[in-house]
């Protein structure tokens, strides 16, 4: 069920121009190193992409 929903939401976010900010990975509790690797890699990816553009838009809206 999760993979179905995530696959769909990834498509939807891509359509909205927000692709790449959602990721799904299966990691067993026995795979500590994999967990570290995935989280590190994703953190780096997001950092390179820069802040969420929605934040700027919503703050601009609040400021009027």
């Amino acid at each position: 069920m999760t993979v179905k929903r995530i696959a769909f939401v990834q498509e939807l976010l891509k359509f909205m121009g927000l692709e790449g900010r959602l990721h799904l990975e299966w990691i067993s509790s026995a795979e500590a190193q994999k967990y570290v690797d995935v989280v590190t890699k994703f953190t780096e990816k997001i950092r390179n992409m820069g802040p969420n553009p929605l934040r700027a838009i919503n703050e601009m809206k609040k400021a009027g």
Partner: peptide, 19 residues
């Protein structure tokens, strides 16, 4: 709908993370 069926309706694997 595939979202109301628990379990597989099609074979899906999580998309790889492209950096």
């Amino acid at each position: 709908s595939p979202f109301s069926i628990i379990g597989k309706t099609v074979e899906l694997t999580p998309a790889p993370m492209d950096v």
